[in-house]
Design a protein around this nucleic acid. Sequence first.
DNA 1: TTATTATATGAAAATAATTTACAGTTTGCA
DNA 2: TGCAAACTGTAAATTATTTTCATATAATAA
Lengths: 285, 285
Amino acid sequence: MNMAKNIITQLRVQRKQYNTTEQKLIDYIIHNVSQAQEATTQEMSDGSGVSTATISRFVKKIGFDSFRDFSVDLARISVQKSPVEFFGEIVDTDDTVAIAQKVFRGAENALAATVNNLTIDQLEQATQCLISARRVGFFGIGGSSIVAFNAYHKFLLTPIDVIAHPDYDVQLMQAVRLDHTDVAVVISHSGRNKDTLLIAQKLSENHVKIIAITSFPDSPLAKLADLVLLSLAEEVNFRSESMSSLIAQITIIDTLFTLVGSQLSEDTQSVVDTMRDTIEETRAQ
Amino acid sequence: MNMAKNIITQLRVQRKQYNTTEQKLIDYIIHNVSQAQEATTQEMSDGSGVSTATISRFVKKIGFDSFRDFSVDLARISVQKSPVEFFGEIVDTDDTVAIAQKVFRGAENALAATVNNLTIDQLEQATQCLISARRVGFFGIGGSSIVAFNAYHKFLLTPIDVIAHPDYDVQLMQAVRLDHTDVAVVISHSGRNKDTLLIAQKLSENHVKIIAITSFPDSPLAKLADLVLLSLAEEVNFRSESMSSLIAQITIIDTLFTLVGSQLSEDTQSVVDTMRDTIEETRAQ
DNA sequence: TTATTATATGAAAATAATTTACAGTTTGCA
DNA sequence: TGCAAACTGTAAATTATTTTCATATAATAA
């Protein structure tokens, strides 16, 4: 039974129990919480008109070991900053900061929304698919080709047989050559890029299992897929939305890679170690 | 540019930026948060083995006005369940959700730490460089080639003349062909990949302005560069760290692209519109 | 009312905490 | 290797907190 009430509330309620000087101090504290949180005894003395000596004695009277203790307790109280204060920082900063903030904030939001939306089931199914596949192909056109290539690069570290290529023509040919023992990870922000859809079509015809990574659950790509992993991003404009969703897509890939890696841990570990050695070699000493 | 993150998270993520003594202090703080919240410099010194003087200097270095300020900020953090558990290294017993959470959380932290570390000045300098360059080359080997390629892809939407290629040999030749009127954006997580360094060396010899995107401010690449944009990531293990820092790197590129775009707004808008039309055409109806 | 006593307060001294100056040491670089 | 720059701890200086002490105030009893 922890009655650990916020010290401000306690002071307000017990205010009458204290004498004039102490009430002066209490009044100062409860009306200037955020200042009081950072104040020294001297500052509090100046603010309240009560001597530092009395302040020191008072905090002990109300149960703290020292003024420092009282300070720490006071600091724990989160004071709602007034909107002026809160937005003030952003408003008076220039364009550069605002833009940088927006881009980063967008990416962070996309990540939060995406992880929030993913289910255990989806991830486990996807992992299982990838592990049991004969070969895994990564497909993506335009901006999404980066995600596909990143996936390819990461999964090279696992024992899984992986396929990817930047060019559309090659991707299409690779798609045609896969069969029902294989898995394809198809990435498209909109889920309606004509080239990507043609690839997905071919994959579907060959009964290749399709894992789609897209931002639109109702898109044609999502409908063709066996499993859809949604990358979400705030809807601001197409450009900034697709930038943020790219971050989310890459992080989905990272997650799948990590999951696959943890499943195949022994096998993978040796592969990773070998690769790491190779990487180390290419570094300056 | 303060994203007002929890100071413990910030310290954990930025840990590597600091030297041995400072890391000793950071380790003490993040492993003894509740003690640290109430500690004086002397207690912290006893606990961490770092002198009170260094502690005082450190808190100023990370942006507080005084140790008292730092204390107050620390006190605001409600100590959650073992943070180690939440952020720790990926172990075999982790279940699917925990792994996904960790990967996403790692990316989010990397973004927060990175934006927190960037200065207006760096971004404005970089933007100015890119805008006034005759040509801009993007260079990256291995995992970083994805970032370079992503940059290339985005900047194709601007009127800026851009260069990038996945192959090392081609990158090296491109590097040699650039001159002092050009700008190179060189990306490397470690900043010490031999191939990347050779490229940077050639660029430097040709007096090409180098903007480095790396996670290590003391790396050879950072030292060769005219401007360093730091991508920060939590130190968990090499793999997960480089995954998260890749996200940060891409977001840095996104920011630069957006900044450049906003500077060249009229010009760019027309290019973007043209490109968008082209993109629309390749979509299904 | 007045003397006595208990309590409260602030100035200033004493103690404790923090910051700075300084000097020895290490580190990086030519 | 030798020089310059950066780092770190000791100790001094500064600043903050607590205690002492002198004084003021209020309560009570004669």
